[in-house]
Design a protein around this nucleic acid. Sequence first.
DNA 1: CCTCCGATGTGCT
DNA 2: GCACATCGGAGGC
Length: 206
Amino acid sequence: MESLVFAMVQEPSATASVAEQARSLLGAHLTGHGVTIMVTEVEAYAGPDDPASHAYTRTARSEIMYGPPGRLYVYRIHGHHCANVVVAGPGPAAAVLLRAGAVTEGTEVARARRGATRSGPVPDSRLAAGPGNLCRALGITMTDLGTDLADPTTPVTLTPAVAGTTGPIVAGPRVGVRRNADVEWRFWIDGQPSVSAYRRHPRAGR
DNA sequence: CCTCCGATGTGCT
DNA sequence: GCACATCGGAGGC
């Protein structure tokens, strides 16, 4: 409650709908290279007014977020890939990070891509748990950067959710961000086993 | 050039 | 809860 007021004061109405668009992606179906997931966890990132966003500074890497919505923004971090949907915010360069999903098709392919950890095989419910693992399960790499997600002929496509079919949606602070660490722009479907545990950035303020 | 540092994942104490 | 592998982007010099 208090944090919501804080967010509204900090972020004027220009970015409020970025969070709404992130919420609306929950329950959508994303297909990547033969594997389909239902999206269970997302995070909203705004543009130049959101220091946690890559679009906070406009560079060659973040340029795609200043372009048309519905395209895929892929970046690498710590040797992993992360996938975002560029959305049309009231402000420029809004995007939604796809953090987790439940595999609904292509489970065998996803298992093969994930392989086994030292402690054993990855449970099917966690094949696309976490943004890096989601990309691995779906075979998303930098070659998919800029894909038009509405074009059914591409290897990566997004099918919108039917509103009101996901069950309860929960919100909290974004995982692992140092700046704007208290803005509650992570959204997930309550009870889904693919959803990440919250980890605060070690050097986040407060 | 060179340094810093993550929108991470995994394993271990 | 904590350490660390890992690597490219971004910015400083």
